[in-house]
Amino acid sequence: MLTFIGLGLFDEKDISVKGLEAIRKADMVFAEFYTSVLMGTTVERLEELYGKKVHVLLREDVEQNPDWIEHAKEKDVVFLTGGDTMVSTTHVDLRLRAQDAGIETKLIHGASIASAICGLSGLQNYRFGKASTIPHPYTSSRGRTIISETPYDTIKANKERDMHTLIFLDIDREKGYMTVNQAMELLLEVEERRGEGVMENAITVGIARAGSPGPIVKADYIHKLKDHDFGGPLHIVVIPADLHFIEAEALVKLAGAPTEIMSTVED
């Protein structure tokens, strides 16, 4: 048996009782923390709570050579991820590999950032379109700095459909955790290059440390938001489409958005 368990958003206490029970009964415990990281805890604290050794996997152990799933043919194995399990395509692929190998699989869900942002900001969950990720810029073989324009295109397409956009921010082993501020700078750089008005004077929402005792939620025009101090990671960004009046009121009262946005919404 291979059980996929979502650990929630911030620390070791976010796990469900069902998930904790499954871990304590397991023969082997594996985890990956490259798609998401629990910033409020450590592997040592997880092990103390579980009473089990946690084998932390590298990206290649999950995506390229997941030989460890063979243990699940004879043993009770659990695989841990931050947030909710199966949110990442990587995890779906891993489950399919297990199924193809004749291994029974099971899911135990955890709190997801996809739903947490709605609660923190007041934006309606049914109004979200396709999500995207802003990666760190990289240097080409010719020495040019390459900035991905895919997030810009995703925001543009969603806005044309009057849908909000959830933007995940890159986690890189060498470059670290991308901040809201860096993400805004990159989007504005693409805007300046393309001049299509997608991000021009756009209301943007930045969220830091969702699930912690003191999350930061701030909404403002993009040129102002890029200078706001969000503190430590993890950060995430939402680019709203046209706002419903309740969403606008929520952003003003819950996220400190400028009150003038209330005049631009429909009843």
Rank of each mutant, 00 (worst) to 15 (best):
F10H: 15
D14G: 12
D14C: 07
I15D: 01
V17P: 13
V17K: 09
V17Y: 02
V17I: 15
L20R: 11
L20F: 08
A22T: 13
I23F: 08
K25V: 01
K25D: 12
D27E: 00
F30K: 10
A31K: 09
A31T: 06
E32R: 13
S36D: 05
V37M: 05
M39E: 13
G40K: 10
V43D: 01
L46W: 01
E47Q: 15
E48Q: 11
G51M: 02
G51H: 00
V54R: 11
L58E: 14
E60V: 13
D61R: 12
P66L: 01
W68M: 00
W68Y: 06
H71I: 02
H71M: 10
A72R: 12
A72C: 02
T81N: 08
S88T: 11
R95V: 10
R97V: 02
R97L: 15
T105H: 08
I108Y: 09
H109Y: 13
H109T: 11
S115N: 08
C118A: 05
C118R: 06
G119Y: 01
G119E: 08
F128C: 13
A131G: 14
A131N: 14
A131T: 15
S132N: 14
P135G: 00
H136Q: 02
P137Q: 00
Y138H: 14
S141Q: 12
S141T: 08
S141N: 09
G143N: 08
T145R: 14
S148W: 02
P151N: 07
T154E: 02
T154Y: 05
N158C: 07
E160T: 03
R161P: 02
M163P: 00
T165P: 09
I167V: 14
F168N: 07
L169N: 09
I171Y: 00
D172N: 15
Y177L: 11
V180W: 07
V180R: 07
N181S: 11
L188T: 04
E189Y: 08
V190Y: 01
E191P: 11
R193F: 14
G197D: 06
V198E: 04
V198T: 14
M199V: 09
E200H: 15
T204N: 06
V205G: 08
V205K: 01
A208D: 05
S212K: 01
S212N: 11
P213R: 12
V217E: 00
V217G: 10
K218Q: 03
A219F: 04
D220N: 09
H223A: 06
K224A: 12
L225H: 07
F230H: 12
G232I: 05
G232P: 04
H235P: 06
V237I: 14
V238H: 06
I239C: 06
A241V: 10
D242I: 13
H244Y: 10
A248E: 03
E249I: 05
A250W: 00
L251H: 03
K253R: 13
A255M: 06
T259A: 15
T259S: 15
M262T: 10
S263F: 08
E266N: 14
